[in-house]
Amino acid sequence: MHWTEIHHDGVRKDGLRYDDRSLRRHAGRPSPYPHAGGRWPIRYDPRDLTRVYFHDPGTGAWSTVCWTFALGGVEPFTDVTLRQLRRELRERGGDPRDQQGVRDALLDLQNRTAAVPPARDWRARARDAEPAGSLPGRRGAMPRSPHE
């Protein structure tokens, strides 16, 4: 769980901004939780930072609150991925706090990752790359069955 203030433009978690209508009526107000210092509880899954979850104590309803830059093809990503992306952005001279930069780097990473063939494709390529002499019907080829 993450405790944070609700601003007019949503909540922040790990430098990412999340916004939804369910938050707006609580913007700028202290939470009803006396031990929280005015902050509100936000639940999240570290395996998917595209969204967080807000429990409205007035209605008892849970709301899914999306990362404002998650729209447009961003797949779920982890807290580990976010740290790595920010490190790479810093190394390239970018601003790791710039959410548009994080989104662009994330899309680039996800596109590069999607371009890697699955393991079965690697096995098929390795099989297809075997020397011609090992193919059936070629000299020195292994018979297909013990009866050939």
Rank of each mutant, 00 (worst) to 15 (best):
101 G>A: 12
89 L>R: 07
123 R>L: 07
128 D>L: 12
68 T>S: 10
53 Y>R: 14
44 Y>M: 08
85 L>G: 08
19 D>K: 06
76 P>D: 12
80 V>W: 14
90 R>F: 06
56 D>C: 14
54 F>G: 08
20 D>S: 09
35 H>A: 07
44 Y>L: 07
129 A>L: 07
115 A>T: 01
129 A>V: 01
137 G>A: 05
42 I>N: 05
140 G>M: 11
55 H>P: 07
120 R>F: 06
37 G>I: 04
79 D>G: 15
70 A>Q: 13
10 G>Q: 06
77 F>W: 09
10 G>R: 04
80 V>H: 15
85 L>F: 03
69 F>C: 10
126 A>N: 11
85 L>E: 13
113 T>Q: 08
51 R>L: 07
105 A>H: 00
30 P>R: 13
109 L>I: 01
120 R>G: 02
61 A>L: 15
104 D>A: 04
41 P>M: 11
76 P>F: 09
51 R>N: 06
27 A>P: 10
125 R>G: 09
46 P>A: 08
11 V>T: 11
15 G>Q: 10
138 R>P: 00
16 L>N: 08
25 R>G: 06
29 R>H: 12
51 R>V: 13
67 W>A: 07
84 Q>V: 06
107 L>N: 05
94 G>F: 03
37 G>P: 05
29 R>P: 03
92 R>G: 05
99 Q>F: 04
78 T>F: 13
52 V>T: 14
32 P>N: 09
100 Q>F: 02
19 D>I: 03
101 G>E: 10
41 P>H: 10
67 W>Q: 13
40 W>N: 09
124 A>H: 06
38 G>Q: 04
117 P>N: 02
58 G>H: 14
109 L>Q: 09
126 A>D: 11
139 R>W: 12
72 G>S: 15
100 Q>I: 01
34 P>D: 11
84 Q>K: 13
104 D>M: 00
129 A>N: 09
89 L>W: 02
112 R>W: 01
101 G>I: 00
133 G>S: 10
70 A>V: 07
59 T>K: 12
89 L>Y: 02
84 Q>W: 07
67 W>E: 12
133 G>L: 05
131 P>Y: 00
21 R>T: 12
72 G>T: 11
41 P>Y: 05
104 D>T: 01
42 I>L: 14
135 L>T: 02
108 D>H: 01
86 R>N: 06
67 W>S: 08
33 Y>A: 02
82 L>I: 09
34 P>G: 09
35 H>P: 00
69 F>Y: 10
50 T>C: 15
95 D>C: 05
66 C>N: 14
65 V>M: 11
97 R>E: 14
11 V>W: 02
20 D>P: 00
112 R>M: 00
17 R>E: 04
111 N>A: 08
51 R>K: 15
21 R>M: 05
35 H>T: 04
107 L>H: 05
123 R>H: 02
24 R>H: 13
10 G>M: 05
103 R>I: 01
26 H>C: 02
110 Q>H: 01
18 Y>D: 07
42 I>F: 01
27 A>T: 06
101 G>H: 00
68 T>A: 09
45 D>N: 15
122 W>L: 09
83 R>L: 14
85 L>C: 14
20 D>V: 02
8 H>L: 12
48 D>S: 05
43 R>K: 11
66 C>L: 15
127 R>Y: 04
75 E>N: 11
17 R>D: 04
122 W>P: 00
67 W>G: 10
91 E>Q: 11
40 W>I: 04
19 D>G: 03
